[in-house]
């Protein structure tokens, strides 16, 4: 990994207010319906997302804005989404 490359995180590791760009959604098995559904909802490579809020207990679930829509995801679901830091965050 070269130094100039932005750090790769999982969505569940982001904090409230963080902005990032989706790089991949990784299925946990061959027939991972949750991963498929995440893609349907707009979690596709290149999409910008932002963490709006985290739940009252243990920061779970996470409210994420992707496209024009907000979704509540459990940490385990969010952990399928890999992101890199957004260099120049868009306006919210």
């Amino acid at each position: 990994m070269t130094a100039s490359r932005p750090a790769r995180h999982r969505l569940d590791q982001l904090g409230r207010g963080d902005t990032a760009v989706v790089t991949a959604v990784e299925a946990t098995s061959g027939q991972d319906l949750i991963a498929t559904r995440l893609e349907d909802l707009g979690f596709v490579p290149g999409e910008m997302l932002r963490v709006i809020s985290r739940g009252p207990i243990g920061g779970d679930p996470i409210v994420v804005q992707v496209g024009f829509t907000r979704f509540a995801l459990r940490r385990a679901e969010a952990a399928r989404v890999y992101v890199v830091d957004a260099i120049a965050p868009e306006q919210p």
Binding site: L33, I34, R37, L38, L41, P61, V63, T69, R70, F71, A72, L73, R74, A76, E77
Partner: peptide, 9 residues
Amino acid sequence: GEHALLLEL
């Protein structure tokens, strides 16, 4: 298995 939340607000 796990339960999915994936809820639109």
